[in-house]
């Protein structure tokens, strides 16, 4: 069983934070196939958030095929994210390191690198949506 927490200053909506925390737990192997997610009642009693927020997060996870809700029993993990993405981490990190070295050589300081990365990341994300 995992426990959710909320970061109110993150700018990420509470429902997104729950979705991300489940995905992270799946990635890190803290949640495995067959595990039960906390019930809506348990989550709201702990975080004092609106039940609809939890329902929405669980629906999205279900839509992604990561969990499945069994009426009256609970919501269970049906898929894991651990192996597939973990294997890709290494090469991706190497690519990023190479890119970082390039950026530093071009004279960018940490702040500029971060700004450039975030701007590119956001544009790419927006293009994905559009």
């Amino acid at each position: 069983m995992i426990e959710f927490h909320l970061d109110e200053r993150s700018g990420v909506s509470p429902y997104q934070q729950i979705v991300q925390q489940v995905r992270n737990a799946l990635r890190l192997g803290m949640l495995r196939i067959g595990d039960r997610l906390p019930t809506v009642k348990e989550v709201v009693a702990q975080l004092a958030i609106n039940p609809n927020t939890v329902l929405k997060a669980y629906r999205e996870l279900e839509h992604e095929g990561l969990v499945s809700a069994k009426q009256g029993v609970g919501t269970f993990v049906t898929q894991t994210l651990a192996d597939t993405s973990l294997a890709a981490h290494g090469p991706l990190r190497q690519d990023l390191q190479r890119w970082l070295t390039k950026a530093r050589r071009a004279g960018l300081d940490d702040e500029s690198i971060e700004a450039l990365f975030l701007a590119t990341f956001r544009t790419a994300a927006q293009e994905d949506i559009a």
Binding site: V40, K41, V44, A45, A48, N50, P51
Partner: peptide, 14 residues
């Protein structure tokens, strides 16, 4: 405050 809202939300869920 937090405990009050926790219980209120639990009641909403129930």
């Amino acid at each position: 405050r937090r405990e009050f809202l926790q219980d209120l939300m639990e009641a909403v869920a129930e």
